[in-house]
Nucleic acid binder design. Structure first.
Lengths: 179, 179
DNA sequence: ATTTTCATGTAATCTGTTACATGATTAC
DNA sequence: GTAATCATGTAACAGATTACATGAAAAT
């Protein structure tokens, strides 16, 4: 099973949904940490149905095809429950970090401007996530506690990014200047 | 050009190297933010040579094939310099964040243990990176300043992860307990 | 003797993105 | 009437992983 499969099971564990709805649900808050297009989601749902982790109900759809509502099965819930406590795979892919390594291969002023922009964007996200968090319950027994945890990770991630990018921009502004 | 191509150019901007050496060089510190296997690196180097961003020199190798040393060209440097100040693409893929969303679909105690392990690992990395940073120059005019910047990003990232995972583990230990 | 390091490649597979394709209903 | 939303799919391509393949030299 692919990670996307588990992402979909995570959403379906909260209630039945169509592929279209899952595409929207993937955007927030999961999308802050795992993105997927509908072209990837539809075939994955078919695979989940094939192995019995979800069941499908077909109704008349608005377009030429039937609308399909997916419901997680007991086997799907078990698979999710077994997957969750396992050590997560970390595959680092951050262009920001990569560019930092080569920072001296470009103009210092231009790179400072880049990191200032990155810092500003990160600060904006921190503020937005914080505002959302303020309206939510931080009770771990709340069924929506997962949303709270994800947003909180978003806050610390972007907070750190903002601090680092600000530091780097400041340092780059000093390039060529006397000590 | 793919991101990996620019990653290789970033390394070659510091000096000529073979594919084998680049495979090792990708591991640290770049590898903390962008990983690549040799099976991906060798064909990418061939592509870079084809478009003239690097030149190859062949020498007798230890095995059945010639050893190839790659040197960045002026065109390669220019491509790198143009790429660096552009806004980096951010493609979120973090299993840790994904699992946080579904945290209530597994046993709270088991998940608490997971986040405690994640926090411990992150703390270890913070300590290791800090030790390395202490022996390095934070002068932005230093040619190895990029290494410093990357490690510093590693510190803030894992620092944030550690704090968050500790908070989450603590919260999960409260599940089912009275307020 | 055996394992590790040096050194390069290909093939099969999996994952993910972009683009193409269809068509009803609702809102403006 | 035009655009957005609802709703599902496929095809072509790009990017990345795992496994297969070869062989010398150096270290244990």
């Amino acid at each position: 099973m692919s990670t996307l499969g588990y992402a979909l099971l995570s959403l379906l564990a909260r209630g039945p949904a169509t592929g279209y709805e899952l595409t929207r649900l993937m955007k927030t808050p999961i999308g802050h940490f795992w993105v997927a297009q509908h072209s990837q989601i539809y075939p994955e749902l078919a695979r989940l149905a094939e192995i019995g982790h979800v069941v499908v109900r077909e109704d008349a759809g608005p377009g030429p095809r039937a609308k399909k509502t997916y419901t997680i099965t007991e086997s799907g819930r078990e698979a999710l429950t077994r997957w969750l406590p396992q050590p997560p795979a970390v595959v680092p892919r951050s262009e920001i970090g990569l560019k930092a390594y080569a920072v001296r291969s470009a103009d210092a002023g231009e790179m400072a401007a880049l990191y200032e922009a990155i810092a500003a964007e990160a600060a904006g996200k921190v503020a937005a996530y914080r505002q959302e968090l303020d309206q939510m319950s931080d009770d771990p027994d709340d069924p929506r506690f997962g949303n709270y945890a994800v947003l909180k990770l978003g806050v610390v991630s972007h907070q750190g990014m903002c601090e680092w990018a600000t530091w780097l921009a400041t340092r780059l502004r000093q390039v060529g200047s006397p000590t």
